Simulated assay, not measured.
Amino acid sequence: MEMSEEIATTAGWREFGDDALSPPLRAALGVFARHGYHGASIRMIAEAAGLSVPGLYHHYRSKQAILAALVDTAMAEMLANTAAAADDAGDDPVTRFENVVECLARFHMARRDQAFVASTEMRSMEPEVRAHHVGQRDAQQEMIEDAIRAGVDSGDFACEFPEDAARAIASLCVSIANWYRPDGPLSADDVVCRHVEFARRLVGAAAR
Rank of each mutant, 00 (worst) to 15 (best):
E126M: 12
S119K: 11
A40G: 07
D113F: 02
D18G: 05
Q64N: 12
M44D: 11
G155I: 06
E98C: 07
G184A: 04
E47K: 08
R34L: 15
H38N: 14
V203S: 04
T95C: 00
E121G: 05
C103G: 02
V196A: 03
A11R: 13
S171V: 02
I148C: 06
T73Y: 09
A150F: 00
E128Y: 07
I144T: 04
A85R: 01
E102Q: 10
V94R: 08
R208V: 04
R26A: 10
E197C: 13
V71H: 04
V101I: 08
F32N: 06
M125E: 13
E98L: 03
M143R: 08
R123V: 06
R181N: 15
Q136Y: 10
Y60K: 08
E197M: 14
S175A: 04
A49S: 13
A76R: 07
R208W: 01
S41N: 08
D72Q: 07
S52P: 03
S119M: 09
A199K: 01
M75L: 14
A80H: 02
V71I: 11
H58T: 06
A8M: 01
L186F: 06
E2S: 14
P54F: 05
V53A: 15
L79K: 11
R130C: 12
M1I: 13
R194Y: 12
L25M: 13
R130F: 14
V191M: 03
R208F: 00
V191I: 05
I169M: 05
N81R: 14
V192K: 02
M109R: 04
P24Y: 15
R200G: 11
E47S: 10
S22T: 14
V117D: 11
R111P: 08
N99A: 01
D156S: 13
D189I: 00
V117S: 11
S171K: 02
I144N: 03
M1Y: 05
D146Y: 01
E2Y: 07
C173H: 02
A83P: 05
G50C: 09
G155N: 01
M3Y: 13
D146I: 03
S41I: 03
M143S: 12
M3W: 13
A170H: 08
T9H: 13
C193I: 03
M125G: 09
R137I: 08
A110D: 00
Q64F: 12
A83C: 05
G90N: 09
A68Q: 12
E2W: 06
D153F: 08
E15A: 04
L67R: 02
L56Q: 06
V174I: 12
F32G: 03
R194C: 14
E102D: 10
A110Q: 00
R106S: 04
M78T: 05
S22A: 15
M1D: 09
S22P: 11
W179D: 13
S4N: 12
D138M: 10
Q64D: 15
P24E: 15
A80F: 00
S124Y: 08
C193H: 09
N81Y: 03
G36F: 15
M78F: 05
M125D: 06
A40L: 04
I144A: 05
L25D: 10
G184R: 02
